[in-house]
Design a binder for these strands. Structure first.
Length: 955
RNA sequence: GCGGGGGUGGCCGAGCGGUCAAAGGCGUCGGACUUAAGAUCCGAUGGGCGAAGGCCCUGCGCGGGUUCGACUCCCGCCCCCCGCACCA
């Protein structure tokens, strides 16, 4: 199979590049530089086509720019910060089948799998596999500078610590409180990866607790997402069978479910249990609505879950389907009414309408109950739907009625915030954090929401920081522009403080310099690390330069990045030479800032924006110059999905198609837009063969042909130079699909037509030059096969990867030559068409009759007038010598309506004759008929000939 | 809901005020080559008409509008995808 042969070729060139170290770049002030990066991927698995697609933009750009004469730095590191790897390792230690299976699928042996109980094993394994994948794909990366993150890599760790020391000095890292889902047993935050899958993605939500009061002042706290409906409370629901406690909460007496108490106790409230109470004991009691002053009864309801919020809720039948139906139910429940003596109380309850909603009656809840045919509290699914419908409708469109006083007339959405604020201020309500549904960790412990006090934040809300960040956007390029820019601008505006640390017990990373119980969170340790690349090859090979990593600290980085202090002293401190320290400073100064960073669109709202913030703060004036953000990659038009097996990793692609075919299909997958790209396996499937055929084709034609330079050669050079120009533009714009369209498909068409047109007698120099340019143009996309041809066919000694990229020669772009050729093609088409329609059996020949001499002059004039916008037949006629007017009046009349009726006059009659004669043989072959060209011919059709539109007669 | 992107032929995708029945690729069909298949090359590929290179109709999510002219601009609507955070 060809794949095998291709892999052999590819590996050969990869080895040669590596040996020649052509992708290792060092500071060289005599050359212009380009620094291009792709965000370091998280190494809990293999890279896939989605990664590859984004990464290819960086790779193509790096290779293109290198060939354009730039000193190009393209490094690649790896990200290990965060929870997933730690969680995965833990699961392996626990023998979790699912995780063992994942590793088995990767092909790891039963003996090896237990080693993955150590996070480090994951990191080392997948870093290695990533490198293998990228090297296999032929990426032009300077591998001396690679590294991975976290304290497992001390020099990088030092770098991040330095970053946070600087940020803290600037007041951009501040302490605050933060709600987290928390395991009360293990006393640890419970992230997604510490939970069974069904609980993933559930985070704390803030609800309002309205404080109803009994006569003695005891607070009956009711949790609600809709505090505005407190105006319509008719009663309180409590679960009669549940355990509640009477407790002292912040100096007040509260009745609250045990679970609720447990939660608020962790939410900065003082809670002291006094005694237990059964829900039942409160049924029938009356409490005062703290907002309206109404006295309302407490009624029993089984649907109230003591494990949600306070375990007590307020009832707003007019606007809450649950409450409406529960009231209906209880009215019919003689037994319960009897038991608690509530019959009369319940009869007096009337729903209170608060919110006016278009298309609904006074009581939207009732409407919804009827609409969904709900007959009892047991109808949970329908009730959920009804509730959601009512909630949304009312929230976005519902208007507050008079009862709301100064808020009357406002839409719920507008008023809600003010109402809550007012309630809290007046002490009639407080806030509480809950999970919307119960969450358990993997040990089965029920989680609460805890407010963590020692939480550190990046102060993205800081106005000054936002301001300087925005300032840098002005000379930052975004691709696609302006789409990507808009997302970033919007994010900068809205970004709030970001909790940037995690408990060391559940994660991995760099410890906060001033609090070693906290790791810096993964999005927060990856904002300015591109600077680290500039010196990574020194720090990651510390022994070689006798650098004492443990001494690398603030002074070191201050010198390298800021030029602060003395090289001599810093060198002494870290145990290396002054030269080494100065060299590192030079590397940073030379390479920074990054010229292009290629990411996916999903990173715009977080990583990209964060990075811009941090650069503005830490590297003023050296912010990243250009960001690109591409869409996702579909595989054959469908989303990739591991579980459905519709998924291809880079290593799989390598095995299946080899590097160049995969790179080609990746390039062809899309242009630089936020739209999703589409990787077509069909394209990758055929490209292996295609590239070999390309090699054969070039081998066949390189160095062949004659010396004569004809107009068709001029045409060919014009076309080729046009393609070169466009390919340059498209590489620059990162439009990889357009690159391939032009550099591959368009070149193929052009070259093939040229050969056919010259009857396979090309001009030797012109063709060979074009073939060389062609190979160079493809080199960034398919570098291996390009090298193979460069050496094996062209017999060059240099690497094409280090050759100069073709530059379009504008002088060779010849509009006229192209039009002349279009004319020839038109004649061929027309001859074929006429032959088809003429229905002449076995035509002997086709006669092409040139127009009469005078038409060339006259129609040229007419054409000019038309192109100037003249549409007046009379005015045009006046410009024409009288003797010809009669002959062309009709033509002109129709040309006024449609100027295309008259072909462009490309030259004299002689020019046309010459051109036809030169193309005669070609036309004959194309149309498969003898051609006779003449200026004089006695045939009725002869008169219809126009300049550059000869009459065609079939005989 | 907010923010972002998008809806073009059998499919994938260009185009973003005229040159558009709409590049290019894939697929399909026809022809050449071949003993044959595959590969390759040439041609066709919205519908209709044409014994002359052409003409007519329909058409770029839906409905309006601006314009001499709209796939392209404006307004309204429908539908799809992504993000809405502490997670890589």
């Amino acid at each position: 199979m060809s794949e095998k042969r291709i892999r052999t070729i590819e590996e050969k060139w990869q080895k040669k590049w590596e040996d020649a170290r052509i992708f290792e770049a060092d500071a060289d002030p005599s050359k212009p530089k380009i620094f291009v990066t792709f965000p370091y991927p998280y190494v809990n698995g293999d890279g896939h086509l989605g990664h590859l697609y984004t990464q290819l933009h960086a790779e193509f750009y790096a290779r293109y720019k290198r060939m354009k004469g730039y000193n190009v730095l393209f490094p690649q590191g790896f990200h290990a910060t965060g929870q997933p790897i730690v969680a995965a390792a833990k699961r392996i230690r626990e023998g979790d089948k699912k995780y063992v299976e994942i590793l088995k699928q990767y092909g790891f042996s039963d003996d090896e799998i237990p080693e993955f109980g150590d996070p480090k094993k994951w990191i080392e394994t997948f870093v290695e596999r990533w490198i293998k994948a990228l090297k296999g794909m032929g990426f032009s990366i300077d591998w001396r500078r690679t590294f991975y993150t976290t304290e497992l890599n001390p020099p990088y760790d030092r770098f991040v610590r330095w970053q946070y020391i600087k940020l803290k000095e600037k007041g951009l890292v501040v302490k605050g409180t933060h709600p987290v889902v928390w395991c009360p047993v293990e006393k640890i935050p419970v992230g997604d990866h510490d939970r069974p899958d069904e609980y993933a993605g559930i985070g704390p939500e803030e609800i309002v607790v309205v404080k109803f009061r009994m006569d003695d002042g005891t607070v009956i706290p009711t949790g609600t997402y809709r505090p505005e409906t407190v105006y319509g409370v008719t009663n309180i629901w409590i679960n009669p069978d549940a355990e509640y406690i009477l407790a002292e909460v912040d100096g007040e007496r509260w009745v609250i479910s045990e679970w609720g108490a447990k939660n608020i106790a962790e939410q900065l409230h003082g809670v002291k249990e006094i005694k237990k109470i059964k829900g039942e004991e409160l049924v029938g009691k009356t409490v005062k609505n703290p907002v309206t002053g109404d006295q309302v009864p407490i009624l029993p309801a089984k649907f109230v879950d003591p494990d949600v919020a306070t375990g007590i809720v307020m009832s707003v039948p007019a606007h809450a389907p649950y409450d409406w139906i529960a009231l209906e139910d209880i009215k019919k429940d003689e037994k319960t009414l009897e038991k608690y003596g509530l019959k009369e109380v319940v009869e007096h309850i009337k729903p209170i309408s608060l919110i006016k909603v278009e298309g609904y009656s006074e009581f939207p809840a009732k409407d919804a109950i009827e609409k969904y045919g709900i007959t009892s509290q047991e109808d949970v699914d329908a009730l959920e739907k009804a509730t959601e419908e009512i909630y949304k409708k009312e929230f976005y469109t519902g208007k507050l009625r008079e009862i709301f006083g100064k808020y009357a007339g406002m839409v719920v959405q507008e008023a809600k915030e003010f109402l809550v604020e007012e309630f809290v201020e007046r002490g009639v309500a407080t806030k509480m954090w809950v999970t919307p549904v119960p969450v358990e960790d993997r040990a089965g412990h029920r989680c609460i929401v805890k407010i963590v006090e020692d939480q550190w934040f990046l102060k993205y809300s800081d106005q000054e920081w936002k301001k300087i960040t925005k300032e840098t956007l002005k000379d930052t390029v975004f691709d696609p522009e302006p789409d990507a820019r808009r997302v970033v601008e919007h994010t900068v505006d809205w970004l709030r403080d970001w909790a940037c640390t995690r408990d060391v017990r559940s994660s991995l990373g760099t410890r906060l310099p001033w609090d070693d119980t906290q790791y810096i969170e993964s999005l927060s340790d990856s904002t300015v690390y591109m600077a680290y690349y500039t010196i990574a090859h020194y720090l990651q090979n510390a022994e070689k330069y006798s650098i004492d990593v443990s001494a690398v600290g603030e002074e070191f980085f201050d010198y390298v990045f800021y030029g602060k202090g003395k090289a001599e002293e810093v060198a002494k401190k870290v145990g290396t030479s002054r030269e080494t320290i100065e060299a590192m400073r030079r590397e940073f100064e030379y390479w920074y800032p990054v010229d292009l960073r290629c990411t996916g669109k999903d990173l715009l709202q977080n990583h990209v924006t964060f990075s811009i913030f941090h650069h503005a703060a830490l590297f003023p004036g050296k912010h990243i110059r250009r960001w690109s953000a591409n869409g996702w990659v579909l595989l054959d038009g469908q989303k990739m999905s591991k579980s459905r097996g519709h998924f291809i990793t880079i290593l799989m692609a390598l095995e299946r198609w080899g590097a160049d075919a995969t790179r080609f299909a990746g390039a062809y997958a899309g242009n630089m837009t936020l739209d999703d790209a589409n990787f077509e396996t069909d394209v990758a499937n055929v490209m292996g063969e295609e590239l070999l055929r390309w090699t054969e084709f070039i081998k066949d034609w390189y160095g062949r042909g004659g010396e004569e330079y004809r107009s068709i050669d001029r045409w060919f050079e014009s076309r080729v130079n046009r393609i070169i120009a466009s390919v340059n533009e498209e590489y620059e714009a990162l439009n990889t699909r357009n690159v391939v369209n032009a550099a591959w498909f368009e070149m193929w068409r052009t070259v093939k037509y040229y050969l056919r047109r010259t009857l396979h007698r090309p001009n030797k120099d012109v063709l060979s030059r074009a073939l060389e340019d062609w190979v160079k143009m493809m080199a960034p996309v398919t570098p291996h096969i390009a090298e193979e041809i460069w050496h094996g066919v062209f017999m060059k000694n240099s690497f094409v990867s280090a050759e100069s990229f073709p530059e379009a020669d504008r002088k060779k772009i010849d509009e006229h030559a192209e039009k002349m050729e279009e004319y020839v093609q038109r004649v061929v088409d027309d001859v074929k068409e006429v032959l088809r329609l003429a229905k002449v059996d076995e035509p002997k020949r086709v006669v092409l009759i040139l127009a009469e001499e005078w038409k060339y002059r006259v129609l040229k004039k007419v054409k000019e007038l038309l192109s100037r916008g003249e549409r007046n037949v009379g005015a045009i006629m006046r410009e024409i010598p009288e003797e010809y007017r009669k002959d062309i009046v009709k033509l002109i009349a129709s040309a006024v309506k449609n100027p295309k009726k008259i072909p462009e006059v490309l030259g004299s009659r002689d020019d046309e004759r010459k051109l036809l004669l030169e193309a005669k043989e070609f036309i004959e072959r194309e149309a498969d008929v003898k051609i006779y060209i003449t200026g004089e011919y006695d045939h009725p059709k002869a008169k219809s000939a126009l300049p550059f539109k000869p009459a065609i007669v079939v005989e």
